[in-house]
Design a protein around this nucleic acid. Structure first.
Length: 219
DNA sequence: GCCCAGGTGTTTC
DNA sequence: GAAACACATGGG
């Protein structure tokens, strides 16, 4: 097995170290969609403020967002950053959501079609789409993010600059097609990346994956 | 002040 | 395709 110890074993180590993460941090499928857009290159604490902003403005529903003025929508989500861009993306996502029959309509699609329909929306890229497909519709897709690239390139498993689909296929081929596992794995990667495997200051002494990490010896 | 955060679209070669 | 750039707030 190349890369040392295998992607499934890495998952077991992370799960043993951090425990179940219980993602997505939201209630409904629609909330996953909203969060997936708002969390683009933003801290989750700011996304929570933006979601609260939508609730306070009575905009937390696809019909409300589609009908809202751009300025009102942008103001509501201001804390999540890029508010003009994200207001347009949120509107486009909600239009598609409604056109496809909402959660029930989208749930009828097979996974490949679901991904394709969501990817066709301006503002939903591969990661945002896979957040929705995995966390809202519980399909076995592996979500690739910046943490995945950073952590596994430091471990010597990835170069880090491979195309998204290459990395996704690699993980999906190495793991059982279990939505619950993909759910936890991505969340655990984020947990490790947030707290330990930082860009400039990796706390390798506290990392459960230390062995094999290119940074384990120090910066 | 600077770095960072659960990216994506556009432009350009 | 791939690189460079714009987009913006809030916490450490």
């Amino acid at each position: 097995m190349s890369g040392g110890r295998g992607l499934h074993d890495t998952y077991r180590r992370l799960h043993a170290a951090f425990g179940p993460q219980g993602w997505w941090p939201g209630e409904t499928a629609f909330e996953v969609l909203v969060g997936a857009v708002l969390t683009q290159n933003a801290a989750w604490s700011n996304v929570e403020r933006a979601i609260q902003g939508l609730r306070n403005a009575c905009l937390f529903a696809p019909e409300r967002i589609v009908a809202a003025e751009h300025g009102a929508l942008a103001a509501a989500i201001r804390p999540s950053g890029y508010f003009n861009v994200k207001a347009r993306r949120l509107r486009a996502a909600c239009e598609a959501w409604l056109e496809h029959g909402g959660e029930a309509g989208l749930a009828r699609l097979d996974t490949a079609t679901l991904r394709a329909r969501l990817l066709a929306v301006k503002g939903l890229g591969r990661e945002s789409v896979d957040d929705v497909v995995l966390y809202a519709f519980e399909r076995p897709v592996f979500v690739v993010d910046a943490y995945t690239r950073r952590i596994f390139s430091r471990l010597g498993v990835l170069a880090g600059d491979e195309p998204y689909e290459t990395i996704r296929a690699r993980f999906e081929a190495a793991l059982p097609q279990d939505p619950a596992l993909f759910n936890e794995y991505h969340a655990l990667i984020v947990a490790l990346g947030k707290d330990i495997c930082r860009p400039r200051r990796p706390r390798c002494d506290e990392c459960p994956l230390q062995a094999g990490c290119a940074f384990a010896g120090g910066p």
